Simulated scan of single mutants.
Amino acid sequence: MADSPASRPRGWSLVDAGAAVAVLLAAAGVIWSPKLSSAVAKATGDLRPVKVMVDVRGVPVADPGALISAIETERKVAIVIRNQPHGTVAIQKLIPLQSRLVALQPNGSVVTAIDPNQAVFGRFDARFVLEGQGRRSEGGVVFGNQSLKIGAPVELEGKQYRVQGVVTDLQVGEG
């Protein structure tokens, strides 16, 4: 008598192997997810206060003074690192920056003066001092689940503005 298909042991097909790989990848994604790693870092005390300075230069604005007042009133900003939103962080301080003109004199000396065109043409130049939580890594400071270094471009967004800036300083405090 021949073996019936129901009595033979069933082997693994290509579809079964693909489903098993998909389940393993999904489990690995859950284990290594950024939110979970942030929760683990928070639970282990690995997160530290991080101060990030971002310089924003040359943004055309009709009324720079009003924009500065609005930013100081909000006291927080949404940060976007490498085109990925990473939540809001507190603004510790906003420092208006002034452009300076430099002129070389015939005798070899250098003379500098505040650029009068900055007020006339309504340009916004400022340094944002931001406070958040992060951790130190081999590749820099992990802030908002992204490795952040001096020179990295970021976007800052508030209720009335969205500006692009560059990280100019990172300071990791003690937890």
Rank of each mutant, 00 (worst) to 15 (best):
21 V>N: 03
22 A>G: 12
24 L>H: 09
26 A>D: 03
26 A>L: 14
27 A>P: 04
28 A>T: 08
29 G>N: 14
29 G>L: 03
33 S>D: 14
35 K>D: 11
35 K>G: 13
35 K>R: 12
36 L>R: 15
37 S>V: 02
40 V>W: 10
40 V>C: 09
41 A>R: 05
42 K>V: 07
42 K>H: 09
43 A>E: 07
43 A>F: 12
43 A>Y: 07
44 T>S: 14
45 G>T: 10
51 K>S: 15
52 V>W: 00
52 V>E: 03
53 M>F: 02
54 V>C: 02
55 D>A: 12
55 D>L: 02
59 V>P: 01
59 V>Q: 00
60 P>L: 04
61 V>C: 14
63 D>R: 13
64 P>Y: 07
70 A>V: 02
71 I>V: 12
72 E>M: 12
72 E>N: 15
73 T>P: 00
76 K>V: 07
76 K>M: 09
80 V>N: 10
81 I>F: 01
83 N>S: 12
84 Q>I: 13
85 P>I: 01
86 H>E: 06
87 G>H: 01
89 V>G: 00
89 V>E: 06
90 A>Q: 11
90 A>I: 07
92 Q>S: 14
93 K>R: 15
94 L>E: 01
95 I>M: 03
97 L>T: 04
98 Q>N: 06
100 R>Q: 09
100 R>D: 00
103 A>Q: 15
